[in-house]
Each structure stands twice: as structure tokens, then as C-alpha cells.
């Protein structure tokens, strides 16, 4: 075991971890925004709209994330003749992919709110939009924090797939060093510990949020 190597390469690994965090945070943010729209469309009474979103969700859940990343990174430039930065390509791929999962999580959350609440709000004079905005969604979001955090942790770990399009995130940083030093064990050990620290922090924050926003 070469602990000196781990210490020596820590700054470079942490730079990679910072890229991993940024990709995860941005993708989760866009994934939740897009996913909310998808969830609402999925539950829409308009038949073609809910059918279309069902197709969207199945397409994204039914194909490997790595393939989706390659499609965007190598595919978009081929179609548009435009360069696409690999970081941006990664965030686009992850946001779209995540929106499908978030949509299903949210749909479950929204459907878990008893029907009576919606009926009560409507009879009290709330418009359907107001009912959604002030009554249903706030409660639904609180309920889905645990699965959303799960999605965040999945995203964080899956961001390692971006190493394949040369984004120097945490996994790639470790690969680059081990390719130079031929010491994969030390590097991947350090890399997994850094991932673990990040996911543990994420779980901790989520538990705090859950406690604070608990339905009383």
C-alpha cells in the first residue's frame, strides 16, 4: 500500500470530487424541475399528453444511462455540426434521465395525498392550480424527500459514467492517476472513500430536512 501516493494525489481527486458534486447538483435541480412538469403531464386528463410522457419515461428508464450519454455527446454534434462541451453534455444527459425517475417519484407522492384534500380545497374556492400549488405539491414534496435523496445519491454515483466522455470527475481523476502510476488499488480505495463521504453527507442533510419538514 502506497499511502504517500494517496496523500500526494488528494488535491487532484478533490478537484474531481468538486466536478462530481457540481454535475450532481445541477442535474438534480434540472431533473426535479423537468420531472415535476413530466409528473403533471403524466397525470393530465389529456390522453395524448399522458401517453406521450409515459413513452418518455419508459424510453429513459429502459435504456442504459451510458448509452444516453454517448447519444448526446457524440450524437448531437453529428446532427447539428456543433461542439458540445462534455460537462454540458453530461448535465443534459443526467437531467433528462433523472427527470423520468423524479416524475415517477413525484407521481407516487402526489397520489399519496388523500383525494378528500383536493375536494375540500376545491369546495373552499381554490382553483385547481391553486390547489396543486398550495395544498397538494408542498405535502407531496415533503413525502418524497427520502426517494429524492436516493435519486440524488444514484446520480452522484452514476456521474462516474461521464469518465467515458473524458469529464475529469472523481472516478476519472482516480483513473488518470492509476493509469500513470499503475497503482489502481490505492487510487480506487481513495476514490470510493471520497464518494462515501459525499453520500453520507447527503443522507445526513436529507434526514435533517425530513425531521424539519415532518408533517405534524
Amino acid at each position: 500500500m502506497d499511502f504517500g501516493l494517496i496523500r500526494e494525489s488528494l488535491p487532484f481527486l478533490l478537484q474531481g470530487a468538486w466536478v462530481t458534486l457540481r454535475i450532481t447538483a445541477l442535474s438534480l435541480l434540472f431533473g426535479i424541475l423537468l420531472g415535476t412538469l413530466v409528473a403533471l403531464a403524466r397525470m393530465s386528463p389529456i390522453r395524448w399528453l399522458s401517453g406521450l410522457t409515459l413513452g418518455y419515461i419508459e424510453l429513459l428508464r429502459g435504456t442504459p444511462l451510458l448509452v444516453q450519454i454517448f447519444l448526446i455527446f457524440f450524437g448531437i454534434p453529428q446532427l447539428t455540426q456543433q461542439q458540445i462541451n462534455e460537462f454540458v453534455a453530461g448535465v443534459i444527459a443526467f437531467s433528462i434521465n433523472s427527470s423520468a425517475y423524479v416524475a415517477e417519484i413525484l407521481r407516487a407522492g402526489i397520489q399519496s395525498i388523500p383525494k378528500g384534500q383536493r375536494e375540500a380545497a376545491l369546495s373552499l374556492g381554490f382553483s385547481p392550480t391553486q390547489t396543486l400549488r398550495y395544498i397538494i405539491l408542498p405535502q407531496a414534496f415533503t413525502r418524497v424527500i427520502p426517494p429524492l435523496v436516493n435519486e440524488g445519491i444514484t446520480l452522484l454515483k452514476n456521474s462516474s459514467l461521464l469518465s467515458a466522455i473524458a469529464v475529469v470527475e472523481l472516478t476519472r481523476a482516480g483513473q488518470l492517476i492509476s493509469a500513470r502510476t499503475f497503482k489502481p488499488f490505492e487510487m480506487y480505495l481513495a476514490v470510493s472513500l471520497i464518494y462515501l463521504v459525499m453520500t453520507l453527507v447527503l443522507s445526513f442533510v436529507a434526514r435533517q430536512l425530513e425531521r424539519r419538514w415532518q408533517v405534524r
Partner: peptide
């Protein structure tokens, strides 16, 4: 890139 063929593809697709 992991593969040299991916590096060549990246060049050809302007990446």
C-alpha cells in the same frame, strides 16, 4: 478517452 477509437470519434465529431 478509454478507447483510442473514441478519441478519433471525438475528433471527427468536432468534440
Amino acid at each position: 478517452y478509454n478507447l483510442y477509437t473514441d478519441a478519433a470519434l471525438a475528433l471527427n465529431t468536432r468534440q
